[in-house]
């Protein structure tokens, strides 16, 4: 069975590009494009990996991550944050909330793929 990833991102063309790269590598990709019910989407799909943007309509990626880690079943779920806000304070906040990997935009496709495969071998 192939590995599954849920991509939570609101930019259509970024969604398309990342979906393409991961699908070609054999991942099953699901996408979700707003913040407010993102946690429900994770609960429903139970992916192997979550790729999360920070600036999302309705609820920020940080809040989504915080709520996710409250749930015992998701404490070890790999979460990759992909954000244009790469300041030290954002990185530190993500780390304190239990992010597995933090990458800034713009990213290289190869790095995202390598990170995904590293987090879910």
């Amino acid at each position: 069975m192939s590995k599954t990833v849920l991509l939570i991102e609101d930019e259509p063309n970024i969604i398309e590009a990342i979906s393409f790269i991961l699908s070609r590598d054999g991942w099953t990709v699901a996408t979700h494009s707003n913040g407010h019910d993102a946690n429900d989407a994770i609960l429903r799909r139970k992916p192997d990996l979550v790729i999360l943007d920070v600036m999302l309509p309705g609820k920020s990626g940080f809040d989504i991550l915080r709520d996710l880690r409250q749930d015992a079943q998701f404490q070890d779920l790999p979460v990759l944050i992909l954000t244009a806000r790469g300041q030290t304070k954002d990185r530190e906040l993500a780390q304190s909330l239990g992010v597995s990997r933090f990458m800034t935009k713009p990213f290289s496709n190869a790095d995202v793929l390598a990170a995904a495969n590293d987090l879910v071998p």
Binding site: N13, A17, F20, P106
Partner: peptide, 16 residues
């Protein structure tokens, strides 16, 4: 933020 986001999409798409 808008500029960075667009650059991200362009970079990823063009490298594909």
């Amino acid at each position: 933020h808008e500029v960075l986001t667009t650059v991200t999409a362009i970079r990823s798409t063009s490298s594909i």
